[in-house]
Design a protein around this nucleic acid. Structure first.
Lengths: 208, 208
DNA sequence: TTCCTTCTACCGGAAAAAGGGGATTTTTTT
DNA sequence: AAAAAAATCCCCTTTTTCCGGTAGAAGGAA
């Protein structure tokens, strides 16, 4: 029996495109598609699926969370994340949550076929197109997304809004020196050398 | 003769999807598609096109610039911008540069058909799906998008990468004082009070 | 209870940025 | 050629951030 593919993506254009591209390939069959996370689980309970192509940005819950859920309930199903390159920061988190690979939306038919092939062999597939991207993610490449504490996230958000240490201190009823300490920790954790790169890295990694 | 459609998008999945969706509609014909800005103009010189579906994120030059170029050279051609909702900040600039409408990638077949229909009647089409988007754009809603000069964009990018005025000056072979002048102009133009908000606003508005 | 993390707070000095000017040259447009 | 826009450079002062530490208090986990 042909490999059963399931598509989870809320962009009709993309679903239609994947359908059309996959139909040109041998030994594959698109068993179905849904446009949100909510409908995905029931479908999987009813149908024997081999590979899921899962968009990272979904309207209801994030692709990351859905990925985790699917991987827990259906560990035999291979998951390939799909994203546009602007959301590349999510990728490593997908992998951490059970995905076996990812494709960016500019992937060619051949790359899609290769990705499916690779994950079916229990290997990890990483889109080569990724390498075309000019600036690789500093943090992504180093492997781990730094975990920030509640307070740090709070202060990071205020920094990105343009508040100074003094203004933040006033707002949070703490000493400006404390804010400065948090700021220093943020710079270290996100591997930034100043406020500018701090904000950029934070936004790129979805921390804000 | 059927309405001639031209697609400019670097995501094969999307191109394939649009092709497939548009073929289901009457009185339309997809005359061709290219995956970058460079190939777009030559194609337009050779083929009589009515409507262009133009992705905002292209590998070579930005969709905005291409939009401007096409509108200048082929003013009779209607342009519909395409973007995912995360890039919604570009939309108003597309409109300012000659686009007649935009669609987000989660648009349905019916919306796409309506968009094409609308722009052919010399009207503006704005995707209704847009209204579901949670936070409206600060600058978009306030009406005007600041236009930055080449040098300003260049310096803005370097600032966001964490370079100081001195480092930027060295890199561009200009005086640090000049860099500082540009920096001050950037702060004014983007209505930011410091580097942090400068970088945030810049990223939110797709300036980086 | 001890360990660990988080949040808190401090010092001193150096470096960078912000604010508010002014002014000349180069490039582009009309 | 004239006007407008962009890019260049400079001064001064104040504010803010960066860097290098150190260290106590609160709270949860082992």
């Amino acid at each position: 029996m042909a490999t059963q593919i399931f598509i989870v993506d809320d962009h009709p254009m993309v679903v239609e495109g994947l359908n059309s591209l996959l139909n040109q390939l041998e030994n594959l069959e698109v068993a179905g598609s849904v446009s949100n996370a909510f409908d995905a689980i029931p479908f999987l309970k009813q149908n024997p699926i081999d590979v899921i192509l899962l968009d990272i940005n979904l309207p209801d819950i994030s692709g990351i969370d859905l990925c985790k859920k699917i991987h827990k309930e259906f560990p035999q199903i291979k998951i390939i994340g799909i994203s546009t390159f602007s959301e590349r920061s999510y990728i490593s988190r997908m992998i951490e949550n059970g995905a076996s690979g990812y494709l960016i939306k500019s992937a060619s038919k051949e790359e899609i076929a290769e990705a499916i092939d690779t994950v079916l062999k229990d290997k990890m597939y990483l889109s080569v197109s990724m390498e075309h991207i000019a600036k690789p993610l500093s943090i992504l490449s180093s492997g781990h997304i730094p975990s920030l504490t509640k307070r740090e996230k709070e202060i990071l958000a205020l920094i990105s809004e343009g508040l100074t240490n003094n203004q933040i201190a006033e707002k949070l009823f703490i000493s400006p020196l404390t804010v400065d300490s948090h700021r220093k920790n943020l710079l270290t954790k996100l591997n930034a050398n100043n406020t500018a790169s701090l904000v950029r890295v934070a936004i790129e990694n979805g921390l804000i």
